[in-house]
Amino acid sequence: MAGRQEAVMRAFWVVLFVWAAAAEAAEPLSLAEAVRLALAHAPEMRAKALDREAAIKQARVALASVLPIVRARLSAMRTDQRYRFDVPRPFLTPRVKATQTAAELEIVQPLVRLDRWAVKREGEIGKTLAELAFTWAREQLISEVVARWGKARAAEEALRAAEKRLKAAQTAARAAEVRYQTGAGTKPELLLARARQKEAEAAAFAAREQWRLARARLESLIGRKVEALGAADLPIRLPEGWVERARTDALSARIAHQKEALAEASVQEALGQALPGLD
C-alpha cells in the first residue's frame, strides 16, 4: 500500500513538472527574459566567471610577494646542575635548576625587489583582464541573443503574414470554385485561383520552416522551448558622446591596453630577477 502511494505521488510530481514546463514554454518570451535565460544558461559565461574568480585569487597571491614577511622564533632551555663541595656548606644548595627562554620577532619588508613588484603588477593586470573578458563575453552573448531574437521575431511575423495570405487564397479559391460550378466563373479563373492557393501554401510552408529554424537557434542559447515571442523590452540608451567613449572605453581597446601593460610587467619581472635586490 505504501509503495502504491509513493508511485502515485511520484507520478503527480512528474505531471506537475511537465505542466509547469509547458506553461513556461507557452508564455510569450520577451527579449529581456531571453537575455536573462541566456546569461544563466551559457556554459561560456560560467567558465568566464570561474576564470575571473581564479584571477582574483591569483592577484591576492601576487600581492603577498610584496607584503612584509614576519618570522617568529621561540626557544627554551632548562638546566639542572648539581654541585659537590669538599667541605659541607649547609647554607648553599647543591642543586640548581634554571629555565632560559628566548623569543625573537623579525619583520622583513622587500624594498628593492623589482621582480616581486612586477609579479604584483602582473596579478593586478591579470585580474583586470579576466574582468574585461567576462564583460566582453557577456556583451557578445547579449548581442547574439538580441540578433537571434530579432530574426525569430521577424520569422514569426512573416509566418503570420503568410498564413493570412494563405487563408485569403483559400477563400478566393473556394469562391472561384462556387462561381465556376454556378456558371458565373470561367475555367481559367478557377485554375488561377487554385495556382495562387498553391503558391500561398508553399510560401506558408517556407515561412513555417524559417520560423522553426530561427526558434531553434534561439532555444539553443536560452536552454528552453519557445512557442511565441513577446515584447522587445530591452532598453537601449546611447549616452552623450558615445562615439568618443566607444573609441576610448571600448572593451577591445581596454583589453589591448591591459595586454600591453602585462607585457611591460613581464619585462620588469625578468629585469628584476637579473638585478640585485634589497630587503
Rank of each mutant, 00 (worst) to 15 (best):
M9C: 03
R10F: 07
V15S: 15
L16H: 06
A20V: 12
A21D: 07
A23I: 09
E24M: 07
V35F: 02
D51Q: 12
A54D: 07
I56D: 13
R60T: 10
V61C: 04
S65F: 06
R73M: 06
R78Q: 11
F85N: 03
D86H: 10
T93Y: 15
P94L: 10
P94S: 15
A98S: 09
T99Q: 06
T99M: 08
A103Q: 06
E104P: 00
I107Y: 03
L111K: 08
R113I: 02
L114Q: 01
L114P: 00
R116P: 03
A118I: 01
E124P: 00
A137Q: 05
G150Q: 11
G150N: 12
A155M: 04
A161R: 08
E163N: 10
A168T: 09
A176T: 06
V178R: 12
R179V: 04
Y180L: 12
A193D: 01
R194L: 11
R196I: 03
E201G: 01
A203I: 02
A206Y: 05
S220K: 14
E227L: 08
A228D: 10
L234S: 02
P235N: 02
P239T: 07
D249W: 01
L251M: 04
R254S: 06
A256I: 04
Q258R: 12
K259F: 00
L262W: 05
S266M: 10
A274G: 08
L275I: 05
D279K: 13
